[in-house]
Design a protein around this nucleic acid. Structure first.
Lengths: 159, 159
DNA sequence: CATTATTTAATTGTACGCAATATAATTTTG
DNA sequence: CAAAATTATATTGCGTACAATTAAATAATG
């Protein structure tokens, strides 16, 4: 480290561009993991994973969705959802029934157990709110910025 | 809005506040996937996955790290890193050598191929910058907010 | 200095996430 | 109406993530 490196602060700008701490994507990646770790103990009580919880959230908002509908709501494809829904079915939270009027489709429906979980899972909301420990305005601004970024990144996808 | 106390709006706001953390989490989750999709075609050219690219970013910043060191930098454990590093070694980007002075440790070192890739990676930055379609200032602000959130979520973890 | 405890990687098992493919049902079309 | 194209879901294969376990090396302890 002696002598062979005369780099001064001014020269470091380009080198720093590739630094981990500078990467927005890494910040997002890290927070996603942090959220996952925060949710895990809360969801473990119900035997749910975070993606499974997302599916239930979607169904609590609107029951009787097709696999495709859930996929569009969550940004997941059948390769992810088919086995996930099978596990949710095995666990007794949802049932999957072929649509009689279009047998290609599978209608995913909440069971009583799945529907009943909504009330119990309400406590998760408050726990997550507490864990974030930031103001509503901050959270709302961040959500909005991420929403824009998500849309922007999606735009560049279809090329 | 301040000081105006409209009963209905208050109810709505309370519901929003409760759900905000959850929505923020989903926004982060979605953007993480969106970034992954944006990076994929860029990294495919080099035969890299995004987590593998993260490891190289860490090594470009500081070469000769232990598995544990890389894990701390990226928030990953040996269960993820061991097979990943094996693939990076097979692909010729890094080499793994047992530390002679402490044979428990494995020192991960960039090969010439791995080190040489850094120059080409600047092109990825430009592409990502374009895809994000926001100013440096915006990106920096978002990164800073995510950094804070990550720290905050981490605080609540240690119980 | 031998035993125990801790540390570091690797391994095993489960669950995403996604590309590519397969399969069956429905539409489109010629 | 029959052949081709499209659509919806499921399956396969690969690469993360992460908990739990294992194995080997080092450190701490009596």
């Amino acid at each position: 480290m002696t002598g062979d490196n005369d780099m001064r602060k001014d020269d470091l700008k380009e080198g720093d561009a590739l630094a981990l701490g500078q990467q927005l994507c890494f910040a997002v990646y890290s927070v996603a993991h942090a959220f996952n770790r925060t949710y895990k103990p809360l969801l473990d009580k119900f035997g749910l994973t975070y993606p499974q919880y997302l599916v239930l959230l979607a169904l609590w908002q609107q029951d009787r969705m097709t696999v495709k509908g859930i996929g569009e709501a969550l940004g997941l494809d059948s390769g992810t959802l088919s086995p996930l829904l099978k596990r949710l079915e095995t666990a007794g939270f949802v049932s999957r029934i072929r649509d009689k009027s279009d047998e290609r489709q599978v209608i995913v429906t909440l069971t009583q157990k799945g529907a009943g979980l909504k009330a119990e899972a309400f406590g998760i909301l408050t726990e997550i709110g507490k864990a974030m420990g930031c103001s509503m305005a901050e959270a709302a601004a961040l959500r909005s910025a991420l929403h824009d970024l998500n849309h922007q990144l999606g735009e560049n996808q279809q090329s």
